[in-house]
Design a protein around this nucleic acid. Structure first.
Lengths: 119, 119
DNA sequence: TTTATATATGAATGGTTGTTCATATATTCA
DNA sequence: TGAATATATGAACAACCATTCATATATAAA
């Protein structure tokens, strides 16, 4: 393709972009999920729940963190429908609401690994 | 499986978890990428660059944001090796460094869509 | 070389967010 | 019922972060 055609195509793409970019509202859901994944505590909670359902206390113990902190973070994850909970005896057990999440994590790890190979 | 066996398995899983959870260092790379995705401006930049390479000014214009703001965010994305840049004439063009990123976005959208179907 | 243009960068600021502390709520056990 | 245990929640604080503003840098054009 000639340089002029390239530039012409580029201008067309640029013109379309402004109209076709998703609006804030439809992006917000995705951004909020990524925000949730952008915290080490929440990621660890998710990775732990990927192995087995756990009570709040068990998570706090496993991650060596306060019960309150874990509870706060679980409520964040729950609001985003990333986890669900159910009482079991005197505890409340949390579980991942969707195995999709782990797929996303794996994909991201792959990106990182391929990135490291660039050096 | 009996209730006792279930509990026994659970305790074993719990015991293993603490040892097998990735440590902070190895999780940090992933968390940092998700942090980068957890901002609407950066997500829009990425979605725009997924269509075509763009100069800083073109991005700023497309997103209706200041040049400075876009430049700051591009430097965040660059540090994470999510984008790369190259001078082209008097502009500097940015491009996605890896199409993997879009796959992750798509995966997340799917999660959201399946989630909506639960109601 | 001077001027204009494109991008980068540092400091300041307002807003967001993760943790802690104290306490409320809810359920089980005695 | 009363005591003990597990979890949730609100307020406060510190740390972090996105944008703006002013300005520096770098390249291209005249």
């Amino acid at each position: 393709m000639s340089e002029e055609n390239f530039e012409q195509e580029h201008q067309k793409a640029l013109y379309n972009l402004k109209a076709e970019l998703p609006n804030d509202e439809s992006l917000a859901a995705m951004v909020n999920i990524f925000k949730a994944f952008g915290d080490m505590t929440r990621v660890k909670i998710i990775l732990a729940l990927a192995e087995t359902p756990l009570s709040v206390g068990e998570i706090a113990d496993t991650l060596n963190m306060s019960q309150s902190s874990i509870s706060h973070q679980l409520s964040v994850l729950k609001q985003l429908n990333l986890v669900s909970n159910a009482r079991r005896g005197r505890n409340i057990h949390y579980r991942l609401s969707d195995q999709h999440i782990i797929t996303i994590f794996r994909q991201t790890q792959e990106h990182i690994i391929e990135d490291e190979n660039d050096f």
